[in-house]
């Protein structure tokens, strides 16, 4: 029992790491990872939605009729996304301004709906929470890592503190949109190389 919970939790951290292994939810991955702070903030918001929606979907899995399950999932997910949006406005307004439109867009993030459909709709609540937590942390770490690479090369800082001397010329390409694709591609490549061994 405890073993299988651990398994559901850890699969999100490596074997099914959302952006790099499942290659899902790339919109926020590409759009908000100009800095570590934005990446982790976005990741945590998504994690909260994932855990809550997974739990509720799993709890209601025997009540929700199969034909309207997607509609029900969307209602549940949209509710939690709106809650996150309100809470972020109330407590971390600066981060909310930076992430902007990408917070409401968590509704259509395919990781959230994907986990509800593929996992939470078929498994018990405690398993669904473990799954949501694992996927969420994996997603947060991926965004943080991508943000760290892009921020350090593109702006020469990590979490706003300068890394290199004053002579450092920021490689601004990395914090712009094309840099996101290049960086994601290189990280996918790296992940595949490591995974091969």
């Amino acid at each position: 029992m405890a073993q299988s919970i651990a398994k559901e939790f850890t699969k999100g951290l490596w074997a099914e790491l959302p952006p790099f292994r499942l290659v899902l939810g790339l919109c926020p991955v590409l759009a908000v990872t100009q800095s570590v702070e934005n990446g982790i903030g976005m990741g945590l918001a998504t994690t909260f939605v994932l855990i809550c929606s997974n739990f509720l979907v799993s709890l209601l899995r025997n009540i929700i009729p199969a034909k309207v399950r997607i509609a029900c999932y969307i209602v549940i997910i949209a509710t939690f996304v709106t809650i996150v949006e309100l809470l972020m406005q109330a407590f971390v307004y600066e981060l909310f301004l930076k992430l902007g439109i990408f917070i409401p867009l968590i509704v259509v993030n395919c990781i959230v709906l994907g986990r509800a459909e593929a996992f939470a709709g078929k498994n018990a609540p405690h398993m669904a929470i473990a799954d949501g937590l694992g996927m969420g942390i994996g997603f947060t770490l991926s965004l943080g890592a991508l943000g760290a690479v892009r921020e350090s090369l593109g702006a020469g800082t990590i979490l706003g503190t300068p890394l290199f001397g004053p002579d450092f010329q920021p490689f601004t390409f990395m914090v712009q949109a094309p840099g996101a694709f290049v960086c994601l591609g290189l990280m996918l490549c790296l992940m595949n190389l490591i995974g091969k061994k």
Binding site: L60, I63, I64, V68, V75, I76, A78, T79
Partner: peptide
């Protein structure tokens, strides 16, 4: 189900 869920939400 949809109505109750939406109302609750």
């Amino acid at each position: 189900v949809l109505t109750v869920l939406s109302a609750f939400s």
